[in-house]
Amino acid sequence: MGDGRTLLRDLPRLALLSLLGLIILSPYIWMLSASLKPTDEIFRANLALIPERFAAVENYSRVFAQVPVGRYLLNGVIVCGGILFFQLLFAIPAGYALAKLRFPGREWVFGAVMLGLLVPPHVPALPLYAGLAALGMLNTYAALIIPSTISVFGIFLFRQFFRSLPDDLIHAARLDGMSEGAIVWRVALPNAWPAATAFAIFSVVAHWNDLFWPLIVVTGTEYATPALGVLHFHTEEAGDDFAALMAACAIMTAPLILAFLVAQRRFVEGIATTGLKG
């Protein structure tokens, strides 16, 4: 009945899962395989996964020569890190205030948060672009980071989490003479670690992957994020140097995958429980 099934009876299920798994993994397998082959082998179009001639070194070094890989990855880290930093900076106090403090207008603020959850990020994009253009701030880290610093989802998540914190904890801190601000960072946040990690993972994955906004506000390579960098390289290559393209894709997608494999459970929990916001 599900528990203690013998390996023999489990085989059909495992076989089916393996088959589906292979299909799901096929892009990765072929991408990696192509990145290791010399271009002429790729164009030979056989189903060989292992290259006859190992061209890994040439392909990858071509990528590093033509594509500012380090730059893109660095930009990715700066942008995602910056966004996360400000998101937490704004959302945690606001979530705490909404959860634990009484003040006039609290219901309105929470209502605004709920409304904000309904609006997809693509809606404010145009005016934000126009505004940034008017301020001459296009093509900067600021342009990439600032619009995403407000995360209504973060506020919502932390509010829900802080609500379950025992009030006595807060009372004790107040008696000890802590200001509300100190309470937020010294008392509330350390107890909200699961919510914070879940949110951090969700935010980083979403923004590392984002193509839409960087495509709008950034031109050129200096401030391009990994997603944009791949798009640039792809446009340039336009079907000639497949090997290098596949190598570039492998490099750009590796960081998140490695992080995922290391902290798998955290990732799955983070994305599943925050799956409210697609």
């Binding site: 599900g2 528990d3 099934r5 390996l7 489990d10 299920r13 495992l14 899962l17 589906l20 798994g21 799901i24 993994l25 892009p27 990765y28 072929w30 991408m31 994955v205 590392w208 992957n209 193509l211 990994p226 997603a227 944009l228 791949v230 798009l231 792809h234 393209l245 596949m246 570039a248 894709c249 492998a250 750009m252 997608t253 998140l256 995958i257 992080a259 995922f260 494999l261 798998q264 990732f267 799955v268 994305i271």
Partner: peptide, 27 residues
């Protein structure tokens, strides 16, 4: 439905979610 391979297969099928969409599109 079974206890075997749960973590492994979950990782395999979840991989597309954490992969760079643009890069995988090229693949």
């Amino acid at each position: 439905a079974g206890a075997r391979g749960r973590v492994f297969f979950r990782a395999v099928f979840f991989l597309p979610v954490v992969s760079l969409t643009v890069a995988m599109a090229a693949a």
